[in-house]
Design a protein around this nucleic acid. Structure first.
Length: 189
DNA sequence: CAATAGATCATCT
DNA sequence: GATGATCTATTGC
């Protein structure tokens, strides 16, 4: 099993990290999946980003070291996983929106309630945290070593990236900051 | 198939 | 007190 991506991988603009994360492998315990869809959130100039107003108790991790997880509760019901990018003090991050399940699929299915097909196990930000067992306990977790890690893509050269506006936001709704693997059946709708 | 409603709560005003 | 980086079930055509 290859080593987790190093901190330097995350220490660059959020948009670059969002593209580079496509094809990499998120692992938590027995479950793992290939990242097929991401969105970049830019920080102070991006009104769709949580961090656009500056540091609050919630956005603190976004201003910290890159390579850590930012997990928050949305709509009182689901949690979303982000990866902190950019150097300390610069709050860019990347939302992980969809996974292609690779291992631990029965475990994922039972966490999701037992009936979902493989394409529907983790094809959305709230679904993938549920399937992978990721919760707010992982907020601030170091992704370069620990129970939750991201490992290099297996065939990065084969990946074709497609770009679109981000989903489900009100501000900056036309910025082309959503990235996904062309042709993947595991991308959200 | 498309549109809509409802669930539910931490965070910030 | 309003809002939201969602999801599922249900209704309507």
């Amino acid at each position: 099993m290859p080593a987790p991506l190093p901190r330097a991988f995350y220490d660059r603009p959020a948009t670059d990290v969002a593209r580079a994360l496509l094809g990499t492998i998120l692992t938590h315990g027995s479950t793992s999946g290939r990242i097929v869809e991401t969105e970049a959130y830019l920080g102070l100039q991006d009104r769709a980003a949580h961090s656009w107003r500056g540091i609050t108790p919630r956005t603190q991790v976004l201003f910290g070291d890159p390579g850590h997880a930012y997990v928050y509760l949305i709509y009182g019901m689901y949690e979303c996983l982000n990866v902190v990018a950019e150097p300390q003090g610069s709050p860019g991050c990347v939302l992980i929106r969809a996974l292609e399940p690779l291992s631990g699929i029965p475990r994922m299915r039972s966490r999701r309630g037992g009936m979902a097909g493989v394409e529907n196990l983790a094809n959305g930000p709230g679904k993938l945290t549920l399937a992978m067992g990721i919760t707010r306990r992982h907020n601030g977790a170091d992704l370069t070593g620990g129970p939750l890690t991201i490992r290099p893509a297996e065939h990065p050269e084969d990946i074709r990236i497609q770009v679109s506006p981000r989903i489900g936001i009100k501000h900056c709704a036309d910025w082309p900051l959503r990235f996904f693997i062309q042709g993947s059946r595991f991308v959200s709708r």
